[in-house]
């Protein structure tokens, strides 16, 4: 990567910026090409894992956003993931609703729940808040079990219809892959933009200098509640799509261990970078699957890999990628007058 020294500094800046963009665009195009080719090359079982990666990446993004932008450790995502899944399961099987209507209902219920619960609970902070979200996960799990007229309890709900898009039924991992990944990309892009908007700066002010944020007139509590609701919406969305995809849901999927795995995903992936949860989701989906071929020792190995990953990547995998990218192509200072 030798860039020829150019005498005029302005030209150098321009070249650098262009080169950086060019490489970025090339990488993005190559990425898209590889992404589109993967289901054709990989076996169906592996594509299935990539679909789960996308589902967890959406739900995990909510947790990571709370953690990375507000410093809130949320263990309640399993509740919203469950609400979405059960809304889809119930509306689609009992009332025969189309998938998108059930999905919206799930998100409305999740958002409302998050608002009602978040308003008082988000007044807490630190370990109190972490414990409160853990308590919510426990309560959610118990209610999912107790309200078996709605959730099927331990038996679960089966026969949930698969998503049908313009007459095309997404009944294989390959078809679902081409649906879920663009959706995930869209969500990541939206959140990336949110992060670089006014609200994004308000969030970072709140995280890094809460006192200053107050002085600046940022309503910290309101902002936290908003992000909590946003996080819940993402969880619910992923849950609904999960129900449609697997076409069976049971309470075993919405326990505290699920909430822990969402948090794990956020931390391993790196909560500070938007792209991080994507790597985290791949980690929690693919690594156990690869390890399980070794035999009964695999959960022990996974724990080991997890610990090593956390120790050696304190910023998460997303942090590593961002660092590498920045090191290869350091961002140039903004050109004068470009006005970002």
């Amino acid at each position: 990567m030798s860039v020829e020294p150019i005498r005029a500094p302005a030209a150098a800046l321009l070249t650098h910026r262009h080169l950086r963009r060019l490489v970025g665009a090339t990488l993005a195009l190559a990425g898209i090409a590889i992404w589109a080719a993967l289901p054709q090359v990989l076996s169906r079982g592996t594509v299935d894992l990539l679909v789960f990666t996308a589902l967890y990446a959406i739900a995990g993004l909510g947790v990571a956003f709370l953690l990375g932008q507000c410093g809130i450790v949320s263990l309640a995502q399993s509740v919203f993931y469950g609400i979405g899944a059960y809304a889809t399961a119930y509306c689609c099987t009992t009332w025969g609703w189309p998938w998108y209507a059930a999905l919206v209902i799930g998100m409305v219920i999740s958002g409302a729940t998050a608002l009602v619960i978040g308003w008082p609970v988000l007044r807490l902070s630190g370990y109190f808040l972490a414990l409160a979200t853990l308590a919510l996960a426990t309560i959610g799990h118990v209610l999912f079990l107790e309200w078996d007229w709605l959730t099927g309890g331990t038996l679960g709900v089966g026969g949930i219809p698969q998503i049908s898009l313009f007459g095309l039924v997404l009944n294989t991992p390959q078809k679902f892959y081409y649906f879920i990944w663009p959706l995930a990309a869209l969500i990541y892009w939206l959140l990336y933009n949110l992060l670089h908007s006014r609200s994004g700066y308000a969030m970072r002010a709140m995280r890094d200098a809460p006192a200053a944020a107050l002085v600046l007139g940022i309503d910290v509590h309101k902002l936290k509640v908003r992000i909590f609701v946003l996080s819940a919406l993402l969880g619910s969305l992923a849950g609904s799509l999960f129900a449609n995809y697997v076409s069976f849901v049971s309470v075993d999927s919405f326990g505290v261990d699920r909430a822990v795995s969402f948090l794990l995903l956020a931390v391993v992936g790196g909560a500070q970078s938007v792209i991080g949860p994507l790597f985290g989701a791949a980690f929690v989906t693919l690594v156990p699957n690869l390890l399980s071929r070794v035999g009964d020792v695999h959960p022990l190995l996974f724990a080991g890999v997890l610990v090593v990953a956390v120790i050696f990547l304190p910023q998460g995998m997303g942090g590593l990628v961002t660092t590498l990218w920045r090191r290869l192509w350091p961002p140039a200072p903004p050109a004068p007058g470009s006005g970002t």
Binding site: L49, F52, N289
Partner: peptide, 10 residues
């Protein structure tokens, strides 16, 4: 159950 589904696919 999610992993059961993944394993069954394989």
């Amino acid at each position: 159950p999610d992993i059961a589904k993944q394993k069954a696919e394989g």
